[in-house]
Computed example of a mutant assay.
Amino acid sequence: MSLTIVAHGPDNPNRDRGPGVQLIRGTFTDKQTHFTVWSSAVEAPDSFQVAVTNNPADLVLIVSGVNTGMLHATWGEDWRAFVPDWKAWFQDTAFKVFYTGRADDRPTPGKVRLCDG
Rank of each mutant, 00 (worst) to 15 (best):
L61Y: 05
G110Q: 14
P84F: 00
F48W: 10
T27E: 11
W75F: 11
C115W: 01
R113T: 13
M70K: 15
H34V: 09
F95I: 13
P84E: 03
F48D: 09
P107C: 05
R113V: 14
D30P: 08
H8G: 02
V60A: 15
T93H: 04
Q22P: 00
A103D: 14
S64T: 15
V97Q: 04
A81F: 10
V60Q: 07
F28L: 07
D16P: 01
Y99K: 06
V52Q: 08
W38L: 12
P10L: 09
A44T: 13
T36W: 04
R17D: 01
K87M: 08
A81Y: 06
G76Y: 04
D11V: 04
Q91E: 10
D105E: 14
D11R: 03
K87T: 05
Q32L: 09
G101R: 04
V112W: 00
D30A: 08
T53W: 01
V52H: 06
F98E: 04
D105I: 06
L61K: 05
G76N: 08
V83C: 08
S40Y: 00
N55S: 09
N54C: 07
T36D: 06
G26C: 02
R106S: 12
D85M: 07
T53P: 02
F95L: 15
W38A: 01
W38V: 03
L23Q: 09
A44C: 13
T33Y: 01
T108A: 10
G69M: 10
P13G: 08
A73P: 01
N55V: 02
P56K: 12
T108M: 11
F28A: 07
I24Q: 14
T93C: 12
N54K: 14
T68A: 12
F28S: 05
G20N: 00
R106F: 08
A57N: 12
Q49M: 09
D104C: 05
D78S: 13
P45T: 11
S2N: 03
V50R: 06
S39P: 00
N14S: 09
D85K: 08
A41N: 08
F35E: 10
G117F: 00
L23Y: 06
T4D: 13
G76C: 09
R102H: 14
P109C: 11
T53M: 05
S2M: 02
S64Y: 05
F82W: 14
I62T: 15
R17A: 04
G65T: 03
T74Y: 02
A88Q: 14
K31M: 12
V97P: 04
A7F: 01
N14R: 10
D30K: 08
A88M: 11
A41M: 04
R15A: 01
P45V: 12
F90K: 07
S40C: 01
P19R: 00
G76K: 04
N54I: 06
Y99S: 07
V60C: 14
P107L: 11
S39D: 02
R106I: 03
K111I: 00
F90R: 07
M70Y: 10
W75V: 10
F98H: 04
A44P: 10
F35V: 09
R15P: 01
K87Y: 03
S64V: 10
T33E: 03
G76F: 07
P107N: 09
T68V: 03
R15K: 11
S64C: 08
K31N: 15
T74A: 13
D11A: 06
N12P: 10
L114Y: 00
E43Y: 07
P56T: 14
A103E: 14
G117W: 00
K111D: 02
L114R: 01
S2V: 02
